[in-house]
């Protein structure tokens, strides 16, 4: 069954409770009158389909554990923050800190993403069809950020074991970035992520960014002891 839930000016806790109940009943959920409001669809369960019509505010899909979320237009700050599984699609622009500290799942942004996309992410994949903003990938522990339309300044600053893949121009690199030519096997792994989204293009000139491991926490400590992930 398909259920329509109106957000409007209602208390977001009530809206989220209605969403939780509908998903628990196995319904497909559409949320209308989203009005860029914050915290919509935070903490959703392990399965279900939900569609937000219009734009959403901060933290949409945060702590997601498996739900498939479709956002018709823009998302505010930190869409999918801390998510461990599931799939989030943003039809337009994703604001700052998209996928911050996410642990798993996929975020697919059809437009551009704001600054610090994938900051401190610990797993999962972020695919941005446009450009990723200033200092994207900052301190990413694990997972992949894949930008098909270039990157802003200070890209991939202070990475741990996360990877930033960029096709297109990079305005500038961050501290401690090592840019490497990916192997065919590595490109094939990325194409596996892009394939279900219909975004594979063999003509792309990839730049893969990883940590240069020259920062103090790599040099002055036993790095393996500090990489606790």
């Amino acid at each position: 069954m398909s259920v329509i839930i109106e957000a409007g000016k209602r208390h977001i806790r009530e809206v989220n409770q209605d969403i939780q109940a509908a998903l628990a009943a196995g319904d497909e959920v559409t949320v209308t009158e989203t009005l860029s409001r914050h915290n919509l669809g935070v903490g959703l369960p392990e399965q279900g389909d939900i569609s937000f019509k219009g734009s959403v505010g901060y933290y949409c899909g945060g702590l997601n554990t498996g739900t498939k979320i479709d956002i018709e237009r823009n998302a505010g700050w930190a869409v999918g923050e801390g998510m461990s599984d599931g799939h989030i699609t943003v039809g337009g622009y994703a604001g700052m800190s998209c996928g911050a500290a996410m642990m798993g799942g996929t975020i697919h942004v059809k437009g551009n993403a704001g600054p610090r996309c994938g900051v401190a992410m610990k797993g999962g994949n972020i695919v941005v069809e446009g450009k990723i903003g200033y200092q994207s990938g900052f301190m990413a522990h694990r997972g992949k950020i894949i930008a098909l339309g270039g990157a802003g300044e200070s890209c991939a600053d202070a990475l741990w074991e996360g990877e930033v893949w960029v096709a297109g121009p990079v305005d500038s690199y961050g501290v401690d970035v090592k840019v490497i030519e990916p192997t065919a096997e590595e490109v094939a792994e990325v194409d596996k992520i892009l394939d279900p989204l219909g975004l594979v293009d063999s003509s792309r000139d990839w730049r893969k960014m990883i940590s240069g491991q020259r920062l103090w926490y790599f040099e002055s400590r036993d790095a393996s002891a500090w990489l606790m992930i």
Partner: peptide, 17 residues
């Protein structure tokens, strides 16, 4: 915040971030 400007422009229209 975007949700504030939507109090003035309630219809879906382009937001510049």
């Amino acid at each position: 915040e975007e949700q504030a400007v939507r109090r003035v422009f309630a219809d879906e229209c382009d937001v510049i971030n």
